[in-house]
Simulated scan of single mutants.
Amino acid sequence: MTDLLFIALSFLAISGAIAMIVYANPMYSALGVLISMLSVAGMFALLNATFLFLVQIIVYAGAIMTLILFILMFLNIREEDLPKEPKKFKLIALGAVIMIPLNVLILKAVSKLPAKDLTITEGDFGGIKPIGMQLYNNWLVAFELISILLLVALIGSVVLAKKRTSKIKKAGEQ
């Protein structure tokens, strides 16, 4: 049963990622990202990693997707604002073909790994304290840089929206 659930969640995660790339409408792409995030959260639940499951749902599928949707709605992107991509599907197929040798290499390497007991460990696996210790002791700089990157992206979207509204006001005055 767990294997079937894992296969279903994997299929949904990959389908969401493909939808994000394929759809031209930013809202549909954001929906694809949401499907992928929720599927990954389900995979964390299968691993008994409760904290990561909750963080994936609350932070990524909740807060980050709300931010992305807010920015998309704030920018009010229309079909004519989007760039023309006549070779989009050819480039996606080319990227997939280029990735095949890397995927084969990874699958061969994983298949040659020695057999280990892969049962879920009890104790503090997936708990808050070990993750917090790792995050704030070993990854503090990366954590802060990511927060700065998100802030810059938010400021950039506001600046773009402000330019757009000023163009619309100037056009309306004429």
Score class of each variant (00 low, 15 high):
residue 17 A to H: 00
residue 160 L to N: 09
residue 163 K to L: 04
residue 149 L to W: 11
residue 61 A to T: 01
residue 150 L to T: 05
residue 91 L to M: 15
residue 158 V to T: 08
residue 42 G to W: 09
residue 5 L to G: 05
residue 156 G to R: 05
residue 111 S to F: 11
residue 113 L to V: 09
residue 124 D to R: 07
residue 174 Q to D: 07
residue 113 L to T: 14
residue 114 P to I: 09
residue 156 G to P: 03
residue 109 A to K: 07
residue 13 A to C: 12
residue 73 M to A: 10
residue 173 E to I: 07
residue 70 F to D: 02
residue 43 M to G: 05
residue 109 A to H: 03
residue 6 F to W: 04
residue 45 A to I: 00
residue 38 L to Q: 12
residue 45 A to M: 06
residue 39 S to I: 00
residue 33 V to K: 10
residue 167 K to C: 06
residue 76 N to W: 10
residue 87 K to I: 08
residue 158 V to R: 04
residue 75 L to Q: 15
residue 172 G to A: 11
residue 63 A to L: 14
residue 79 E to Y: 13
residue 14 I to L: 15
residue 169 K to T: 05
residue 130 P to L: 07
residue 61 A to F: 01
residue 94 L to C: 03
residue 13 A to M: 14
residue 11 F to T: 12
residue 5 L to F: 12
residue 98 I to C: 08
residue 107 L to V: 09
residue 127 G to E: 07
residue 81 D to F: 07
residue 74 F to A: 02
residue 20 M to T: 12
residue 140 L to I: 12
residue 116 K to R: 12
residue 7 I to N: 07
residue 64 I to H: 00
residue 66 T to G: 14
residue 14 I to E: 02
residue 139 W to H: 13
residue 128 I to R: 10
residue 6 F to T: 08
residue 156 G to A: 13
residue 16 G to T: 02
residue 57 I to S: 08
residue 2 T to D: 06
residue 89 F to A: 07
residue 56 Q to P: 00
residue 51 F to S: 03
residue 113 L to H: 08
residue 98 I to M: 10
residue 152 V to Y: 01
residue 13 A to L: 10
residue 115 A to F: 11
residue 51 F to I: 03
residue 73 M to N: 15
residue 52 L to R: 02
residue 172 G to C: 00
residue 127 G to T: 00
residue 47 L to K: 01
residue 133 M to N: 11
residue 109 A to F: 02
residue 124 D to T: 11
residue 67 L to M: 13
residue 12 L to A: 14
residue 5 L to C: 03
residue 115 A to D: 15
residue 55 V to P: 01
residue 35 I to H: 05
residue 35 I to V: 14
residue 33 V to D: 09
residue 10 S to T: 12
residue 129 K to M: 12
residue 105 L to T: 03
residue 130 P to Q: 08
residue 141 V to C: 00
residue 10 S to Q: 04
residue 159 V to D: 01
residue 156 G to Y: 13
residue 65 M to T: 13
residue 112 K to N: 13
residue 134 Q to A: 06
residue 60 Y to W: 07
residue 155 I to Y: 05
residue 81 D to S: 07
residue 3 D to S: 09
residue 126 G to L: 04
residue 133 M to C: 01
residue 27 M to E: 06
residue 96 A to N: 05
residue 148 I to M: 14
residue 142 A to D: 05
residue 135 L to E: 07
residue 118 L to V: 13
residue 73 M to E: 03
residue 135 L to A: 11
residue 3 D to R: 10
residue 36 S to F: 06
residue 68 I to Y: 12
residue 120 I to G: 00
residue 23 Y to P: 00
residue 91 L to N: 15
residue 70 F to Y: 15
residue 94 L to H: 00
residue 65 M to W: 10
residue 70 F to Q: 05
residue 154 L to V: 15
residue 164 R to T: 08
residue 88 K to N: 07
residue 64 I to T: 09
residue 22 V to Y: 15
residue 99 M to S: 15
residue 91 L to C: 10
residue 141 V to I: 11
residue 167 K to P: 00
residue 73 M to Y: 13
residue 106 I to R: 11
residue 21 I to F: 11
residue 68 I to Q: 10
residue 30 A to W: 04
residue 163 K to M: 07
residue 72 L to I: 14
residue 165 T to Q: 14
residue 26 P to F: 04
residue 49 A to H: 08
residue 113 L to F: 10
residue 59 V to Q: 09
